[in-house]
Amino acid sequence: MIRIEKERIDEFIRALMETWSVYAPARDGKNTLFAPVEDPAGIDHGIFNTDKSPKEIFFPHSEVLFEFEGGEIKKVERDARPIAVWGLRGCDARSLRLLDKVFGSAWQKPDNDMFEDPYWKEKYDDSIIFGTACNEPRSTCFCNWFGAGPHDGAGMDVKVVDTGEAFILDPVSEKGKKYIGSLKGWAEATKKDVTKMKAAAKEADKAMGEVFGMDGIQEKMADLFLKPVWNDIGAKCVNCGACAFICSTCHCFDVQDEGKKGKKGKRIRIWDTCMFPIFTMEASGHNPRDMSKDRLRQRFMHKFSYFINNYDEHLCTGCGRCVIVCPVNLDIREVVREVMACEA
């Protein structure tokens, strides 16, 4: 564990920037997001949880897969340096781990041959994640529903705790240990720091709302699939994609070609969402999820049923972004409560 006094944080980030392409929370106009760092002074260490989720660092809203001209296919060159993310909260760090199960090799086992997405892997595999422990969780946070907590280090390589006067860097993974071990010129964290860290963790835990038990939700969801409860839950949903696009775990996408047909252009991968009717529109014109409530149900089925079947975890980490942006205040926590309260 090393200790970085707050006034020296820019120095630390600058050193990091020599070998890594660093992303950190920043303000862009009216919103906050993870942006490539050009000047460490531009990092906003006080941002609680960015408005836009950090999934876009590794899974951009629109990503050029390749360019083509005539019969030639050209790979798109990207920054060759590995990515370092600074200031990621625990919920987001775990989100990236979930996405790695889908796109990367986290779910690769000897008996299954999972497809690994090269575009994800080239960015995520070599990356290092500096996570920030939350000292002041918000009322919309519910990471504790998923067995995590504001000071949880899962999904991070190095956990960073703000003790007021300093950042304490606590390595979590092997990669993190190796990196922290390689650093020179930083003091070890003192006993006093450790006491402060523990106190902060305790305070933060206290600030969290009550845990809601979600045992058995995946079977429950499956049983309720055809039940009218979805009419009630889905009644107010207006079917926009705000929740899915700011979600740190939603990862559906569409692939399109842009440019002159067959001549010159690029193939891009763009975020898509089950909330849009065109997501499931078939060539015949038939849409299996024709009604707004069908599409809403799909989003929650994916999060709390299908994903558990496939990857053994909920596809939600309790970051609370969708709770904040939903234009009709359709609160994911209420949906879970309603589902759990419903007799199958």
């Binding site: 926009c240 994609g241 705000a242 700011i246 849009f276 234009p327």
Partner: peptide
């Protein structure tokens, strides 16, 4: 800043 979520259209 638009993320093309179409919330504006849908409400």
């Amino acid at each position: 800043a638009c993320i093309r979520c179409y919330a504006c259209r849908n409400v």
